[in-house]
Each structure stands twice: as C-alpha cells, then as structure tokens.
C-alpha cells in the first residue's frame, strides 16, 4: 500500500473523544429500537399482533388452541357476515384415509371440481381449483404429455377419451413436506397432509416439489361470494385463506374428521360413483375391498411418493 500524503491542515489538537451534539452509539441504538417497536405496536391491533406472533399450530396445546380458534371464528364471522365454526378436531386413532378413483367410470363431467370449490371455499377470482380433470387419449393411455385439462365438448364422455381427475395424492412420503423450510406442512396421523396457513411463508418450495401439481398458491387475495361460503370450517381445511399462502386438497378434513364423518364433497358429488373413500386400516372398508379385488395403479409410482390415492379400473 502506498504511503499517505501529508494532510493539508496540520494541528496539534487531540481528536475530540465525544463529538458534541451527536448521539452516542448507545443512545442511537436505544432510540432506533424504541422507534421501531413503537411504530410496530402502533400499527397493529391486538388481534393482528396475536396473529403475527402465533406459533406453529402443531405446537399449540389446549387453551392456546381455543384462543386461536375463538379469534379466527370471530374474524371470519365478521368477514363473512354470519356465524362460522372453526373446528380443530384431531386425527382419530386407528384411521388412515385412502382414496380410490375408478378410471373406468369417470366421465369427465367436472362436478367434483365444483363441489370441491363450494365445500372448501375456494377462491373464484383468481380461480383456484383443487381438482384438475385430465382428458386422456384412449390410444396413449395415461400419458400426461398428451393430456388436456381444458377440454370442453358438448357432452362427456367423448368416444375416444377417458378422464383422470387429479388432486393431492396424500403421499406417505410427501416431497412437499420434505421441502418446506418452515415446517408449515406435515402429514397428520390419519394420513392427511395439512398446511398451517398462518405459518406458511409463501416461498412455494412445496409447489416446485409436488409431482402432481396438487398445490395451489393464492397469488392474489382470494374472493368467495359471501352467500356461497361454507360456514363449517376446519383450521387445516376450508377456512378462508390469506393471500400469499399455499393450499391444497385436505380430503375435506372438516367433513371426514367430525364424529360420524361424511364422505368428502367430491365423493358425494360424483354422479357415476367413480370416487371411493375410506379407512385403509379397516378391512371392511370399500377402499380395502378395492385394493383386494381390483387392480390399482399409482400415479407416477416410480417417484416412490407412495400416495394413498389409488386409481383403478372396476370394469
């Protein structure tokens, strides 16, 4: 390094240890911290602060869960204009949900898609649909590169096509759960892969990781017409999602987990009975019957995600 040049001004004064009129470092830091905190606190309501600092739902217990549910019910009731209930029912013992989809029956009518939209309060604009029905050519078989999700003939089924609805496969080895950096999504004991919408940071790593295109992002604020809102909600299911988080099929967790749980909305809506649902741990269930008597195949089975969603041909 070069030698420095001699300074222009040459005095013998000692450097001033504490410059007058300036803040000391301690004062500066304290003031900034106080300023930041006060701005933050002033701009938030109590509910807003509680929401911001809420822990991961999986780590909450007892009273904390009740408080969160109460806050959400109040918030959604105001938002929607009528009373809603938000359930936090946990997974039951001895239950592992499985799904069967009969490709020899599906006619591609998309009634399942719209039943899901209604049941789960999916955004109409921007449009989010958890179920996507793919039209396949009979000649190519199940070949997604030849598939078309935008078919719109006058009548279905079309003679040279068959139809394959897809949604979350509720994998046993979910790549999305592996990929999430914030542990905002995980597999529940009853097999449903859930998302904590209040913990999700919206990084969309899970969406890149999902092989089935099952996850959907709220790019804009979701809109649901007030008179179409389903008021029976579950924390992990169909409660109104904020903008900027990921969502996906939850096997209608708000329906299946309740005592005397009902079938998911898509199963109810299918006019031809192509959709089957049940408890994989119950030998008498229809899903176990399907596994025993029919020949099932797994979508993208080579990826070893081990879905609990079984496609089959009942014929």
């Amino acid at each position: 390094m070069k030698d420095s040049e001699t300074p222009i001004v040459n005095t013998n004064e000692k450097p001033d240890p504490e410059p007058r009129g300036h803040l000391t470092r301690r004062q500066f830091l304290a003031l900034s911290a106080a300023g930041a905190v006060s701005v933050f606190l002033a701009g938030c309501t109590k509910a807003g602060r509680e929401a911001f600092f809420q822990s991961r739902f999986k780590e909450l217990t007892g009273k904390d869960i009740d408080k969160v549910i109460a806050r959400l019910e109040k918030q959604y009731s105001e938002q929607v204009g009528r009373a809603v209930s938000v359930s936090a029912t946990r997974a039951a013992e001895g239950v592992l949900f499985g799904y069967g989809l009969d490709l020899s029956r599906c006619i591609g009518c998309r009634r399942c898609v719209y039943a899901c939209v209604e049941e789960n309060n999916l955004s109409r604009d921007p449009q989010i649909q958890w179920i996507r029905v793919l039209r396949m050519n009979k000649e190519s078989g199940v070949d997604i590169m030849e598939s078309d999700a935008y078919y719109n003939p006058a009548k279905v089924p079309e003679p040279d096509a068959f139809y394959m609805p897809t949604a979350c496969q509720q994998c046993r080895h979910p790549p999305c759960v592996k990929a999430c950096p914030a542990k905002a999504t995980w597999q529940e004991p009853d097999g449903i892969v859930v998302i904590d919408y209040d913990w999700c940071i919206g990084c969309r790593c899970c969406m890149a990781a999902c092989p089935y295109g099952a996850r959907h992002f709220n790019w804009g604020p979701p809109t649901v017409p007030k008179d179409h809102i389903n008021p029976h909600m579950h924390y992990f299911g169909n409660r109104p999602r904020p903008r900027g988080v990921v969502e996906k099929c939850t096997f209608c967790i708000q329906r299946v987990r309740e005592p005397n749980g009902h079938y998911p909305a898509c199963v109810e809506a299918c006019p031809v009975g192509a959709r089957k649902f049940g408890n994989l741990l119950d030998e008498q269930s229809e899903i176990r019957y399907i596994l025993r008597e029919k020949r099932v195949f797994i979508f993208k089975e080579e990826l070893n995600t081990q879905p609990k969603f079984y496609y089959f041909y009942a014929t």
């Binding site: 911001f52 914030a182 940071i201 919206g202 992002f217």
Partner: peptide, 15 residues
C-alpha cells in the same frame, strides 16, 4: 430476491 419472492415476507422469522 428471496424476500421479494415470498408471499409473506414478514413471516421470515419462521425460518
């Protein structure tokens, strides 16, 4: 770049 890509950047503390 990662911050502007996030849906909820204020939730960065979750990381």
């Amino acid at each position: 770049f990662v911050t502007v890509d996030m849906g909820h950047p204020e939730r960065f503390w979750h990381l």
